[in-house]
Computed example of a mutant assay.
Amino acid sequence: MSDATNKKIDVRPGEELNTAEIDAFLKARIGGLKGEPLIRQFASGHSNLTYSIVYENKRLVLRRPPFGTRPKSGHSMIREFRVMNALKPVYPAVPVTHFHVPDEESPLGVEFYVMDEVEGYKIDRDMPAGLNFDAAKNRALCESFFEKLIELHAVDFKAIGLGDFGHPEGYVERQIKGWNGRYEKVITDDVEDFADVRGWLEAKMPAGEVGHAIVHGDYRLDNAILNLADPLKIEAILDWEISALGDPLMDLGNTLAYWSQAGDPDNILAMRMQPSNAPGMMTRREIVDFYQAKTGIDCSHFDFYLIAGVFRLAVILQQIYYRYYHGQTQNKAFATFGQRTNALGHYARSLIEGSNIR
């Protein structure tokens, strides 16, 4: 896979790995590795740290939590590792995983896991130019991407050994109150408290849940790898750190919180992380209708789930900004995240004002 489609960079200062130590550790656990590893970082991602480790005969990926303060339940490597292992036989669109190392056994001092690198096209803010997709192909890719989400939500999680992966009952309430509480802990002087948005979300939670499924939690086109031979096929979905068992509409709401489109505020469009506004891509409304038609799930009150997803995204960015604000990470890319938090909070307010939920 070329860096043009899955960009790698030199390891950022302060985030280096000890090459000799990692090499010995990997060779003791994965047979047949040849040569000395070249260690770089994947440029994408603002949360867990993802390293490319390339041997003469194998490409590996190491995932570890970020440095600095982390939410107690966040950045769980064993969670990612376990869900991908369980899904692989019935939902092939996940990487092959090798092993997980807990904190107490880790040469890094924190848990991590190792998986194979999946070769294919990596989508970022825009479609890779080499694909030459027109509007019809963009539409086909969009449908393929959301069909893969529907396929995930249809997996019998108990049958694959994930019945104890979480407590799906009450998922919506836990999510809303949990993200609200996390926000309170990371407010900085330059962001609003958005107490009105948090209060609305708690007051307007649906009376019941539409069902329970494996929810990815961060399902985005830029977390997908496209098949090299057939780029309309989703080869792998990455970044399972906040996967859980819960209401699938929360998952769809989280996904569409990232889905910028024409008519959105300029500061929201400026945050676009995926080519969701490319010609032929479905609008949020079309996606919700597509999902409802394919699953039979009533999406008539979807406004709540979208607003919940938008504010959750604000909290995620603020958690990252909090680490930067307090000097716990030196990544300059995080310097504007407080501004983004404010933009998303104001956007959530505008969605509430336009919502049919009263």
Rank of each mutant, 00 (worst) to 15 (best):
Q41P: 02
R340I: 08
M127I: 15
S243W: 06
K122W: 05
R285T: 13
R182S: 09
V90W: 07
V288D: 01
A314Q: 10
P107R: 00
A333D: 15
A278R: 09
E192Y: 12
I150G: 04
G120K: 02
R220K: 14
S355Y: 06
H46R: 14
F165T: 02
N356T: 13
G208K: 15
F99W: 08
I176G: 01
V155G: 02
D289A: 15
P107Q: 03
A343P: 01
N180L: 03
G211S: 05
L38V: 15
L141H: 02
R285N: 12
K88R: 14
V288P: 00
D303K: 05
V94G: 00
D189Q: 11
D164G: 01
H153R: 04
G217E: 05
K332G: 03
E21L: 14
Q330E: 13
K137G: 02
L149W: 09
F290E: 08
R82W: 00
S243T: 10
V54Y: 03
I123L: 10
D156I: 12
E111T: 01
T329K: 01
A24S: 14
E147V: 06
G163S: 07
R63G: 00
G296R: 04
I297C: 08
G120P: 04
L17D: 00
S2I: 13
E16P: 07
N267V: 14
E209Y: 09
A43G: 13
D23P: 02
N18Y: 03
V172P: 02
A293P: 04
I187T: 08
I176C: 04
Y325W: 14
M127Y: 10
F99Y: 06
A236D: 02
P13R: 08
T295K: 07
V101L: 00
Q274S: 14
L228W: 03
L317T: 05
M205S: 10
D164Q: 11
N277M: 13
A278F: 09
T97N: 02
K7F: 12
V11P: 02
D190P: 03
S44F: 11
N132H: 15
D196M: 06
N57L: 06
A224F: 02
E235N: 03
A24G: 11
H216S: 13
H326T: 08
I150S: 07
D10Q: 12
A348Q: 06
D303C: 09
Q175P: 01
H346R: 15
R340G: 13
V191L: 03
F165I: 06
N85T: 10
N48K: 05
P279D: 08
D126P: 00
K27E: 02
V11Q: 01
D164W: 02
I316L: 12
R12F: 12
N132K: 15
F165N: 05
D289T: 10
G296C: 06
R340N: 14
P248G: 05
A244Y: 13
F290N: 08
D230L: 05
R29L: 00
Q274V: 09
I242F: 11
K27I: 02
E286Q: 15
R79I: 04
N223P: 07
A28I: 01
G35W: 07
Q292K: 15
D193S: 13
I352E: 04
